[in-house]
Structures are given as C-alpha cells and as structure tokens.
Amino acid sequence: MHTGHFTDTAARDHFRALYDDAVARLGPTSGRDITTTHGVVRVLTCDGPPGIPFVLVPGAGSPGVSWAPNVPALRGRATVHLVDPLGGPGASTQDVPLRSVGDQVRWLRGVLDALGPCHLVGTSMGGRLAFEVARRSPAGIRTLTLLDPALTFTRIPAGTVAASLGALPGAPTWLRRRFVARLGGGADVADDPVARLIEAGLSGYASAVPLPPLPTARDVAAVGVRSLVLLGGRSTMLDAGRARARAALLPRGTVEVWPDATHALPGEFPERVAERLSSLVAAS
C-alpha cells in the first residue's frame, strides 16, 4: 500500500497556494510538527483563553484549515488545534502506509499525547476517526463531539458512494464540483474558499487511507467519554433518523438532529456549534 501524495508538482503548488492563503486568513496562528508512528503531523494552533483546548479533526480530503469558519467562535472560548490528517492533503507528511483503522488511531493518539488533555471534535470521516480513538484509547479526551460523522452510526448512502467517483484524482472538474456541492447542499464551490481548497485536494492528491468498517452497537456502547453528536437533517452522508437511533447507545451521549443542516453542518452553523460545545464542556 502506498502513502498519500500529490499527483504532480503543479497540483501540489496549486493546493499549497490555496492552503497558505487560508492559513493567513485565520489570524494569529502557529504551526507545529508532531512525529508519529506513520509520519509527521502538522498542527495549526489558534491561541485562545486558558483552559483545555479543542482539537479539531477534518473530514477526508480536507486539511485542518478547512475548519476556518469555526475558528473565530471557538478561539474566543479556548485554544484551538487544527490537525492535518496523515494520508490526505495538507502540510503533514506520511512516511508509513496506513493499513487499518488501528494505524489511524495510533498516529492520532500520538498527536493527542503531544498536545495533552483536550476536547476532541471531528467531522465527517474525521468524526469516524475521533470516535475510534475515544473508543480504543480515550486517555486525556475530556469530551467528544461528532459533527455529522460518516460511517459511524449508519452506512454512507448508495447515491453518495456513486457520486464519490468525482472525488478521485483525474475526475472531470464538473463531476468533482458536483460531488463537493452535494455534500454542502448544493452550494457553489467557486463562492467558497474552503470548498475550493477541498476541491484542489481532491483533484490533485492521491489519498492513502483505508475505509473503516461500520462500528457495531457494542462498539458504540463502549465509548465512555461524554459525547455530543450533531446530525444534519439534510445530510447526504447519512440517514439522520437511523444515525440518531444508533448514536443513542452512547452511554454518556447527547444526540441532536438539526433539520436545516447538511453534511457541511460545522461551516453552516459555526456560532451555534460553538455554543453547543461550550455547553458540553461546562457539563463535563
């Protein structure tokens, strides 16, 4: 199995230009490289008030800076760490192939060990990974928040699986943009800098991340961390009703369906998400 890589120099340079511009728009930010079992992980830190920080894990094909819409509201409450996942586009460098979800847990566990206690937040496939770390190795995770997590409480709908052909490098631009728009409820990619960055990653980066299995009911019930699950009622990545029923098995979980939200829930409702995170932290 190969490691993730840009398909060519032009694709890398195009992505990095968009990435650097997005980082510059975050405001005061510092970068840190953390050596893990499978490569060097870049973490961007947006300083906030003293307290336990938030660690944000983005979805597949997205770097940490894709959380940009959420940073202003969250950094007013605590420091925010943005993780560039291994195997995907960003400033991290994958050195060792990721062969299983266990390998993914190991590299993220190494990042969390370096950062210290945190409130862990994941969206889409980043939510799936955050769930797995909280289940297998929860040390230091004070709370867990999953924002429309993919392949965590329900399978991905067949229509979205078929549309994901547009996420493959070399796919026609129109097909790729249709896929990105599908996830965001039809928003125009050209009007959204975060969507443009994600599109550049999809078009120019060959990902090398294994697809995890769907957790069992027993797996869900084994997560002992206080948890918050927010699901998009208009999500194309999951069936919100079925996901809510399965997520209700979390022993210390709160589950909400936001009827007007799509799979892009974090960016659609950043202030509301921050308020719910604050309430979770206060109750922990």
Rank of each mutant, 00 (worst) to 15 (best):
G110W: 10
G110M: 12
S235C: 00
G127S: 01
L120A: 07
A167R: 12
R142K: 13
T216I: 07
S100L: 05
L175I: 12
A181N: 07
P213W: 08
P157T: 06
T145R: 06
V189F: 10
Y205H: 15
R182I: 05
A195C: 00
V220C: 11
T236W: 01
L230F: 00
S164I: 11
E132P: 01
D192T: 02
G159M: 07
T173V: 13
G224T: 03
R99L: 10
D188Q: 10
H119S: 07
W174N: 02
D239F: 10
G122K: 10
L175R: 15
R106M: 11
V161R: 15
D219G: 06
G170E: 08
R128L: 05
I141M: 08
T173Y: 02
D148A: 04
L147G: 01
R226E: 04
S137A: 15
R155L: 08
R196Y: 06
E132D: 07
A150W: 00
V180G: 08
A221Y: 02
A195G: 02
G184E: 01
L115F: 04
A187N: 02
R178A: 15
D192A: 05
S124N: 07
R218L: 09
A206K: 15
R182C: 00
P193M: 08
I141S: 05
A134G: 06
P117S: 11
P212F: 02
L98S: 04
G110Q: 11
A187L: 04
G185H: 01
V101G: 00
A150C: 05
G116A: 11
T145G: 06
G122A: 04
P138N: 07
P169N: 15
G232D: 00
G233K: 05
I156M: 13
G201A: 12
G126T: 06
A150I: 07
L115S: 14
T152N: 04
G126W: 12
D95A: 15
G232Q: 00
A190R: 15
P169M: 14
L197K: 12
I141Q: 05
A162D: 13
I198N: 03
V101W: 11
W174M: 10
L144M: 03
L183M: 10
T145D: 04
L202F: 15
D113E: 14
G170D: 14
D95M: 09
A130Y: 01
D113N: 14
A162N: 05
G159V: 03
A190S: 14
L197E: 02
S227H: 05
L211F: 11
V121I: 10
L238Q: 06
S137N: 04
L120W: 07
R196I: 06
G122Q: 05
V133W: 06
L108S: 04
L147Y: 00
A221C: 07
R218K: 13
E132G: 03
A150K: 02
L168M: 15
L238C: 03
L228N: 03
R182M: 15
G116K: 12
G122T: 08
V161N: 07
T123E: 11
P117Q: 09
L228E: 06
P117W: 09
